[in-house]
Amino acid sequence: MQFKLIINGKTLKGEITIEAVDAAEAEKFFKQYANDNGIDGEWTYDDATKTFTVTE
């Protein structure tokens, strides 16, 4: 399945899409990606669109 991350950071904005087995695997990848890029904010997930959003 495809999952999307929308980044609304103070210094980094954009979107990335990955293939993952389930939402838990996608969330783990996205949170590591955000951590690696210094993004720390509020997370939301929309199951209907398979979209995670992080907002700083």
Rank of each mutant, 00 (worst) to 15 (best):
K10W: 14
G41Q: 01
D47K: 10
T11L: 06
E15M: 02
F52W: 07
K13N: 07
G9A: 09
T53L: 07
G14W: 07
Q32H: 08
Y33M: 10
N35H: 13
K28Q: 13
V54D: 01
I16N: 02
E19G: 05
G9R: 08
A26E: 00
F30P: 00
K28F: 07
A23M: 12
T49C: 02
D46C: 03
V21M: 04
E56T: 03
T55I: 14
L5V: 11
A48L: 07
L12G: 05
F52T: 10
K28P: 07
L5S: 00
D40L: 13
L5F: 04
D47S: 14
K50S: 12
F29P: 02
A48T: 07
D47F: 14
N37E: 09
A26D: 00
Q32S: 04
G9S: 06
F29E: 05
D40T: 09
T51S: 06
L5C: 02
Q2T: 07
Y33T: 04
E19K: 06
A24D: 13
F29Y: 03
V54Y: 01
D22V: 15
M1T: 08
E56W: 14
K31S: 06
N37T: 07
K28S: 15
I7P: 01
K50G: 11
T49P: 15
N8I: 08
T53I: 07
T17D: 03
Q32M: 04
D47H: 10
I18H: 13
Y33I: 02
V54W: 01
F30C: 02
A34I: 15
Q2K: 13
F3D: 00
D40V: 14
L5E: 00
F29G: 10
E19H: 12
K10E: 09
I18C: 02
I7G: 07
T17R: 06
T53P: 00
D36R: 10
T53A: 07
T51Y: 11
K13E: 15
V21R: 05
K50I: 10
W43T: 04
F29S: 10
K4F: 02
I7S: 09
A26Y: 00
D47L: 09
A34H: 02
A48N: 09
A48Y: 12
T11I: 10
D22A: 11
I6P: 00
F30D: 00
G38N: 13
L5T: 02
N8L: 04
K28L: 13
E27R: 09
G14M: 08
T51K: 06
E25P: 09
K13Q: 14
D36S: 06
A34E: 05
T17C: 02
L12Y: 08
T11G: 11
K13C: 03
G41H: 00
I18V: 11
T55S: 08
K13R: 06
A48I: 04
T55E: 15
D22M: 10
Q32P: 09
T53D: 06
A34M: 04
A26P: 00
E25R: 09
F3S: 00
Q32A: 06
I16D: 11
Q2C: 04
I18G: 08
W43M: 11
N37P: 01
V54C: 02
E15F: 01
M1V: 10
K31L: 10
A34D: 01
G38E: 06
D22F: 10
T53V: 04
T11W: 11
D47M: 08
E19Y: 14
E42I: 05
V21I: 05
L12A: 03
M1C: 02
A23F: 04
E27V: 06
D40Y: 09
I6E: 05
T11S: 15
I7W: 10
N8W: 05
G41I: 01
Y45R: 12
I18Y: 08
Q2P: 14
T44V: 06
I6R: 10
I16G: 03
T51A: 15
L12D: 10
T53M: 07
A48V: 11
K50V: 11
N8F: 14
E15G: 03
D47Y: 04
A20I: 09
E19F: 10
F29R: 14
E56A: 01
E25N: 15
T44D: 11
K10F: 05
Q32T: 07
M1L: 05
T51L: 14
Y33G: 01
A23R: 15
W43C: 01
A24K: 11
G41P: 02
N37A: 11
M1D: 15
Y45K: 15
V21E: 08
D46T: 05
T44W: 03
L12F: 05
W43V: 03
I16E: 08
K50W: 13
A26H: 00
I39T: 05
E42N: 14
I16P: 03
F29T: 13
Q2W: 14
F52V: 02
V54R: 00
Q2L: 10
D22K: 12
D46V: 11
E56N: 04
G41A: 02
I18S: 05
V54G: 01
E19I: 09
L5M: 10
G38A: 07
D47R: 03
N8A: 08
I7D: 03
I6T: 04
F3L: 12
I16S: 05
K10G: 06
K10D: 04
D22G: 12
K10M: 08
K10T: 10
D47Q: 08
Q2S: 12
A26C: 01
Q32W: 12
K13T: 05
D22Q: 14
T17Y: 04
Y45F: 14
N8Y: 13
G38Y: 05
T49Y: 12
K10S: 13
E27G: 13
K13D: 14
G38S: 14
A20G: 11
E42Y: 07
Y45E: 04
G38V: 06
K28W: 08
Y33K: 08
D36A: 09
K4I: 05
W43N: 00
F52E: 00
I6F: 11
T11D: 15
T11H: 03
W43G: 00
E15N: 02
I6H: 13
D22S: 06
T49V: 12
Q2E: 12
I16F: 06
M1G: 14
D47V: 14
F3K: 00
A24S: 15
E27K: 14
N35M: 10
V54L: 09
V54I: 08
E27A: 11
F3R: 00
A34P: 00
I16A: 15
M1E: 03
T17V: 09
I39V: 15
K50E: 06
E42P: 14
G9D: 13
K4N: 02
K10Y: 15
A34W: 01
G41Y: 01
A20Q: 07
V21A: 05
D36T: 12
G9W: 05
G41F: 01
A34G: 04
G14K: 05
I18R: 06
T55Q: 06
G14Q: 05
E19S: 13
K28T: 15
A20M: 07
T17I: 15
K31P: 00
A24Q: 13
V54P: 00
E42C: 02
T11N: 08
V54N: 07
T17P: 06
G41W: 07
F29N: 11
K13S: 13
K13V: 10
E27Y: 14
A34C: 03
D36G: 13
Q2H: 04
T49G: 14
E56K: 01
A23K: 13
N35A: 12
G9F: 03
W43F: 12
M1R: 09
G41E: 01
G41D: 04
A24Y: 14
E19C: 04
D36K: 11
D47G: 06
F52H: 14
E42M: 12
I18N: 08
N8E: 11
T49D: 05
T55G: 04
A26V: 11
E15I: 02
A24M: 04
F3M: 14
T55V: 10
A48G: 10
D22H: 06
G9T: 08
K31V: 14
Q32R: 03
G9L: 09
A24C: 03
Q2I: 09
F30Q: 00
E15W: 06
Q32N: 07
T53S: 07
K4C: 01
F3Y: 03
D47N: 05
E19P: 12
